[in-house]
Design a protein around this nucleic acid. Structure first.
Lengths: 214, 214
DNA sequence: ACCGAACCGTAACGTTCGTTACGGCGATAG
DNA sequence: CTATCGCCGTAACGAACGTTACGGTTCGGT
């Protein structure tokens, strides 16, 4: 019941155990058992219970651990100045699509969706916070910077981000979660990232201004 | 293991039982038990097993039953002639958002996502076929009709539909599946359906032609 | 060398739940 | 009226799995 592990304080051995749990999660989904995790990690169940409290604690720690590993595309001021807004958005879209279509992300989101239904744990909110919301926090300053430099026109930053979300991800995530055999090559991801970015500019480019990228 | 029920041939009593299973699914998610369903339906477990074979058979029949009840927005030729393309798309978006945000749809999709992970049943493909794919089959003729009448310009119908998908649904479905407390009033749905339709036209309107809706 | 802590492997316990079996009851046909 | 059939309610069985307990091993500190 209780969560024994702070996200920051993890032994290397504990990280290895969580990686094993992650692997189990990818292969067995929510049906993973404490026994299978302990076998994969070559550790005893007693250790699992001592470290993580109970099954939910292990799952929560695993989700947190994976979330901490995900490279949220970071866009800071210097990046904004060096790269054009178009290139920044395009790269962001590319990274995002790549993460979303990874086996790890799919397994994690499936688990979180399941638990959001059973209502016992708050894995859903953890994934939400580290997924959708983290993306918003990263991208919204970029959008507002684009507005300040006169490249974009919009009123509500959050709504604008959600439109970008829709243009980039479309039906990809739900299809993958439902088990659709959807293969996204790097080339296809790049191509669509570019197209979605163009569409985004079409919708939000400042009307009486120079076009982005000339 | 075996599926005993054809989707078409369902007694009234059996439909009532499946509705009870649906209710159980909404409250308990994947954790619903045969006992709870039999209690809700006021039937015996023996009957459940005789009719549906086993637990998976019951779940599959329930998903099929709900899928058969969902009103996929139907757009036929006569509708296309009576209503403008804009109004048609807007209504389609509205119906779709309403379905997606209903408790039933959320519960069903959660279950399907869970099972797509465990890989035992094909609930995911059933939901996919009756959700995302059914929508595509309905809307794509509309888009092509719009292209033929010179209102829209696009090359790939499927890609165009997926863009519409993204503009309409954005982050709504994944947030709801992950348990985000997102309340969509009818007014908000209508407003966004209109906005998404406008954005869609901005992206795909024929360049050298009269604007849709004057 | 000795001690204690941490950990591994495994056995054991208790619960939950899918599945099956059985007795009773109302309806319907002969 | 009686026999059969479908269904209800409940009890019982068995397996899976979360959780706990225990003996043996490793390892760092003294």
């Amino acid at each position: 019941m209780t969560i024994h592990i702070e996200t920051e304080a993890l032994t290397d051995r504990q990280k290895a155990v969580l990686d094993a749990a992650l692997a189990a999660m990818m292969e067995e989904g929510d049906a993973l058992t404490m026994t299978s995790v302990s076998r994969r990690a070559s550790c005893s169940k007693e250790t699992l219970y001592k470290w993580f409290g109970d099954r939910d604690g292990l799952l929560t720690a695993t989700v947190r651990w994976q979330a901490s590993k995900v490279n949220v595309p970071i866009v800071d001021k210097s990046t904004l100045e060096r790269k054009s807004l178009t290139a920044t958005l395009e790269q962001f879209a590319k990274d995002w699509l790549t993460v979303i279509s990874s086996d790890t992300s799919i397994a994690l989101n499936r688990l979180a969706v399941s638990h959001a239904g059973s209502g016992k744990t708050n894995l859903g909110s953890i994934v939400l916070k580290n997924g959708r919301q983290a993306m918003g926090r990263r991208l919204e300053p970029v959008l507002e910077a684009g507005r300040e430099t006169g490249l974009l026109t919009f009123e509500n930053t959050d709504e604008t981000f959600r439109t970008f979300f829709g243009l980039v991800l479309r039906d990809v995530q739900i299809r993958l979660l439902l088990g659709d055999q959807l293969k996204l090559s790097a080339a296809e991801i790049s191509a669509h990232a570019a197209e979605a970015t163009q569409q985004f500019f079409t919708l939000y480019k400042a009307t009486n201004n120079t076009k982005p990228e000339g």
